[in-house]
Design a protein around this nucleic acid. Structure first.
Length: 289
DNA sequence: AAGTTTCACAACCGCCGTGGC
DNA sequence: CGCCACGGCGGTTGTGAAACT
């Protein structure tokens, strides 16, 4: 098949319609991967239609770009999403919504596609089980007040066990969510001294959250707040420096004027299908994998 | 053991913004 | 200014594997 060479800007590129090229679709073969990798390694990224042609691939430029970015790129990170990454995704999604590429910017090595898949398969699954819409206030509240603190607990437990410190054995815990003490955990480790608090204070300002933490509030949100010593951000930055991979000091979950215990023992819990189903859901090990 | 369902992930599709001509 | 090619993005679909009945 002959390629037509035409001018394009200051350079020359090879133009050929997809019909002429008998474009391939579907899963990539090892040979195709090799061709693409070799070509991009030598010539660099960009001009993907040219890449497809010059590398001898019967693929569209778009397909090549996607394959490279999502799979072949050397710095792409594969494997399970870590607890830290999960926590970060939840938080970033609350800030950016479905702007997956934006979220991916904050997760080195993870692709927007991977994060999108994670959200669809894991997060939306939880919403479905809770019988609420993933974008509903109810589900967002569940994420903030229950899921994210639990993720933090898990992270701490993992961290502590890996450093030989006592762990808070979440799998063994039988305390229902609605019986949580206001201070959920209070253990320390050498490197990661972390605490999660639920504020039981009423009123406009959280009392447990460090006064100088720099974390900010919006009108109705609860936060898992970084320790005072680790952050230096003003209200406009909010969570921009959030980094679960580097947590140290005392982390605080609180919400102005929110009584978490009251919140969960009152009828508020019912929109999540009752505390039993909620508890069993959060204790479902597959949820954290 | 076989059939069915669910899950996870890769890949495609369509839309839109951008820049060169 | 309109056209076109391209790249980027989010939504959706296809498919193989695992889990379930």
């Amino acid at each position: 098949m002959e390629a037509h060479v035409t001018g394009f800007g200051s350079s020359t590129y090879v133009q050929q319609s997809e019909e002429e090229r008998d474009v391939r679709k579907g899963p990539w073969t090892v040979e195709e991967d090799s061709l693409l990798t070799n070509y991009v390694t030598i010539h660099g990224e960009g001009r993907w239609n040219t890449v497809a042609l010059c590398a001898g691939l019967k693929r569209t430029g778009k397909s090549c770009r996607l394959r490279w970015l999502n799979y072949l790129r050397p710095d792409v990170r594969r494997g399970n999403i870590t607890l830290q990454e999960q926590l970060k995704i939840l938080e970033l999604h609350s800030r950016f919504g479905n702007r997956w590429s934006k979220i991916a910017e904050h997760l080195p090595g993870r692709t927007d596609n991977e994060i999108k898949n994670y959200w669809r398969t894991r997060v939306q699954k939880q919403a479905k089980q809770l019988k609420c819409d993933v974008n509903s206030k109810q589900f967002r509240d569940a994420m903030r007040y229950v899921w994210m603190p639990r993720l933090l607990e898990r992270i701490q437990a993992t961290t502590h066990s890996s450093t030989g410190q006592p762990t808070s054995n979440i799998a063994d815990r039988t305390t229902p969510t609605n019986n949580y003490p206001s201070e959920i955990t209070g253990t320390h480790a050498d490197k990661y001294t972390s605490q999660v608090y639920i504020s039981t204070e009423s009123g406009p300002e959280p009392s447990i959250m460090p006064a100088s933490s720099g974390a900010s509030w919006d009108s109705a949100d609860a936060y898992v707040s970084p320790p005072a010593s680790d952050v230096n951000m003003d209200n406009s930055q909010n969570w921009s420096d959030f980094n679960p991979d580097n947590m140290s000091g005392s982390w605080v979950l609180s919400k102005p004027g929110l009584d978490i215990q009251g919140f969960e023992t009152q009828s508020n819990i019912e929109w999540l299908g009752g505390d039993e189903s909620l508890e069993s859901l959060w204790n479902d090990e597959t949820m954290w994998l």
